[in-house]
């Protein structure tokens, strides 16, 4: 029983990170209707940047989330205004998908050239602490990671619900044409969405860097994770990402504990396919309508 609860606890903590790493992907999917296969690269780029800040400047990864987020915001913005915008105005949905796939290859290659192919980790001083709660053991880093994820997700929720930008974004998602006619600058909102999405991905990368080993090649896994989170929880909302992320974390944790770590990807994927077949809109549905 203790083992089961410990496994659950680990799964939930992992799930919080999945949720944060996926929420930007979900936002872009919901608002612009694009599956961004470059998303995993943003996550990994965030991890590398945090590593750089840590080794070069001694900046704690949690603090470096700010500069990392800011940098990636800029990258996301520019990326949308150039490549993505060109692609969706010229090519089919599938072809745009291929463009993001191609961009992922380019960026992955760049990361490999820059940082080398080896697996990396960030190890701040609290890496080796853990807290005991009765019979359970909680790694300090994971707790910190989960806490920061929750804070960021909450921040995004408030941004979407309370600010002008958030309302504009929801309007663009539901009725792009009507939003444009009523004077909203749709292009700017798309670019903002990409910026916010990339910033959150980068921030999650900084956290992932202290929790898990990473390399440029792991970008695919993070893109797929984000996709699975969206399918499980539903498109376009932080709450959906949280539900999907926690679920994915639990599936991962239970599979690793009871069936062996080799099968985690397979198990997660199996659940994904079942979900797509049984409830294509995700557990919480798509707040922006079902047309996508």
């Amino acid at each position: 029983m203790t083992l089961f609860l410990q496994t659950t606890l680990n799964g939930l903590m992992l799930g919080g990170i999945y949720a944060l790493a996926a929420v930007g992907f979900s936002l872009i999917f919901g608002v612009i209707g694009i599956v961004n296969l470059t998303h995993g690269v943003f996550v990994i780029a965030g991890a590398y940047l945090a590593l750089l800040f840590y080794t070069e400047l001694g900046l704690d990864p949690l603090l470096s989330m700010l500069p990392v987020g800011a940098l990636l915001f800029a990258v996301g913005w520019v990326y949308q205004r150039t490549i993505i915008d060109w692609a969706i105005s010229r090519a089919s949905v599938e072809a745009s998908l291929v463009v993001t796939f191609g961009m992922a290859m380019i960026l992955r290659n760049l990361l490999q050239l820059w940082f080398g192919p080896d697996v990396q980790t960030i190890t701040p001083f609290y890496s080796f602490f853990s807290i005991s709660l009765g019979p359970f053991r909680v790694d300090m880093v994971r707790l910190v990671a989960l806490g920061s994820s929750m804070v960021l997700l909450l921040g995004l929720t408030l941004l979407l619900a309370r600010t002008h930008f958030g309302r504009a974004m929801r309007a663009v998602a539901q009725q792009p044409l009507a939003a444009a006619l009523s004077g909203l600058n749709v292009k700017r909102i798309h670019a903002m969405t990409f910026g916010v999405s990339a910033a959150l991905a980068g921030a999650s990368g900084a956290i992932i860097g202290i929790v898990q080993p990473f390399s440029a090649a792991s970008e695919v896994a993070w893109t797929l994770n984000a996709f699975m989170v969206v399918v499980l929880g539903g498109v376009g909302s932080p709450a959906g990402a949280l539900v999907g992320g926690l679920l994915l974390g639990l599936i991962n944790s239970y599979t690793a504990q009871y069936f062996g770590p080799a099968l985690t990807q397979a198990a997660m994927f199996l659940v994904l396919v079942l979900m797509l077949l049984l409830r294509p809109t995700g557990l919480l549905g798509n707040p922006y309508g079902e047309s996508r």
């Binding site: 490549i83 060109w86 692609a87 010229r90 090519a91 072809a95 745009s96 291929v98 463009v99 796939f101 191609g102 961009m103 992922a104 290859m105 380019i106 290659n109």
Partner: peptide, 9 residues
């Protein structure tokens, strides 16, 4: 990757 992007665009 660059070729793909270029070709589609």
């Amino acid at each position: 990757g660059a070729l793909v992007v270029a070709v589609i665009l």
